Computed example of a mutant assay.
Amino acid sequence: MAVSLHAFIDAAARAGLDYRFLLDAYERVPFLHGIVVSIELVIATIAGSALAGLMLLIALRHRNAWIAAPARAFVELTRNTPTLVQLYCAFLVLNMLITQWLRESHIDNPFKPFFWVVLVLSLHKGAFHAEALRAGFDALPVQTLEGAASLGFDRRTRFWRIELPLALRTALPALVNNFVELVKATALASAIAVGDVTYQSIMIWTQRDNVLALMIVILLFFGLLTWLVSLAGRWLERRLWIPGYGA
């Protein structure tokens, strides 16, 4: 293993790429940990955004205007403002206010940068998920809804057992695209010093001046993650396809 690593580093050096940091445990260990943190961010934000999207969809479709209107305002505000600005507002403003409030009670703030990244990205992409699902609901055939109503299903049963499963199939390509964008957006975590692969790479190249070598690693890493998400999405589309539906 060590021989192969040295051979790789030597071959990369001949190509003008400096990966000598892999031989230094002081830099290698945080870098590998950064890869793990990035994967954790992707998993957490995918799950969180899916939940946020479903909750926003339910709120948007609620009959009570006092619930639907704020949900619509939140979706529009979230979709139309930069993700980085939202992250700064949450971490530098809201988190600071929480810290000051808890400090009066001599309590440490339990919300770490990782939490704020997951929260902001989940809500941000959740708004896009909700709109994709709403389009899926709008595309449902009227005959399907009338048939469900004629069978005596109440509104809640129709939503969970008929409308949502069918709308999900229609919206799935858009949802997968949102998840791909979400994977790439996790790189913003480095903006508030979350120790992901991007942040750890920045720490290394400020000392070694090997920006190109590490940028190639980052590009390949996120390219692999997005490819896996796309692959899972295509598999899910085939798995959930209903023969003849929508034809």
Rank of each mutant, 00 (worst) to 15 (best):
M1S: 14
A2W: 10
L5F: 08
H6K: 14
A7F: 09
D10H: 12
A11W: 15
D18W: 03
D18N: 14
D18T: 04
Y19R: 07
R20G: 15
L22Q: 10
L23N: 12
D24L: 10
H33L: 09
H33T: 08
I35S: 11
S38R: 06
L51H: 07
M55K: 02
I58S: 04
A59C: 12
L60C: 07
L60Q: 12
R63C: 02
A68L: 03
A69P: 00
V75C: 06
L77F: 15
L77C: 11
T83R: 10
T83A: 15
L84Y: 04
V85S: 02
Q86I: 04
C89K: 05
C89Q: 11
F91E: 07
L92R: 10
L94N: 00
I98V: 15
T99S: 15
H106S: 15
H106C: 13
I107V: 15
P113Q: 11
F114T: 00
W116N: 01
V118N: 03
L121Y: 02
L121T: 01
L121P: 03
S122Q: 01
H129N: 13
E131W: 11
A132D: 08
R134A: 09
F137N: 06
P141F: 08
Q143T: 14
T144S: 08
A149I: 10
S150T: 11
F153Y: 14
R155A: 14
R155C: 01
F159A: 09
F159N: 09
R161K: 13
I162K: 07
E163S: 11
L164V: 09
L164F: 15
A167L: 08
R169F: 00
T170D: 09
A171Y: 13
N177Q: 13
E181P: 00
L182P: 03
L182V: 03
L182W: 09
V183Y: 05
V183D: 07
K184R: 12
A185I: 01
L188T: 08
A189M: 12
S190K: 05
V197H: 06
V211N: 11
A213K: 00
A213L: 02
M215W: 04
V217T: 06
L219V: 14
G223W: 06
L225M: 15
L228P: 00
L228V: 07
S230C: 05
L231V: 02
L231D: 10
L231Q: 10
A232G: 13
A232Y: 14
E237H: 00
P243L: 04
P243I: 02
G246F: 00
G246D: 01
